[in-house]
């Protein structure tokens, strides 16, 4: 991806992370400040986080990609909601 206005680059990168079959992540937020690219949002597991970072670094090799992603933790016995 070539150098361009930061808001265009952020949008293109976000769309590329959704379309790339290795990532297919739609929930990644991308912010661009100068040469720095910040990725945030929640992903399901550590492997997916690594893959997103790897693909993003391939797409913008001339910028620093910062990892602000987190991994979702799901578990525990759910409580019942009574609808009456």
């Amino acid at each position: 991806m070539s150098a361009q206005e930061p808001q265009y680059l952020a949008t293109h990168l976000r769309e590329a992370l959704a379309a790339d079959p290795r990532t297919a992540e739609m929930g990644v937020r991308v912010r661009v400040h100068g040469d720095d690219v910040y990725l945030s949002g929640e992903v399901a597991c550590a492997e997916r986080r690594e893959r997103i970072l790897q693909v993003a670094r391939e797409l913008v090799p001339d910028r620093r990609v910062h990892d602000e992603l987190s991994i979702a933790h799901v578990g525990g016995r759910p409580e019942e909601e009574r609808l009456s």
């Binding site: 929640e42 979702a72 799901v74 578990g75 759910p78 019942e80």
Partner: peptide, 15 residues
């Protein structure tokens, strides 16, 4: 949606 629930499943009891 799992990211909304943040638990394994929602549990709803209906009269």
């Amino acid at each position: 949606a799992l990211p909304v629930l943040r638990r394994t499943y929602g549990l709803y009891s209906l009269e």
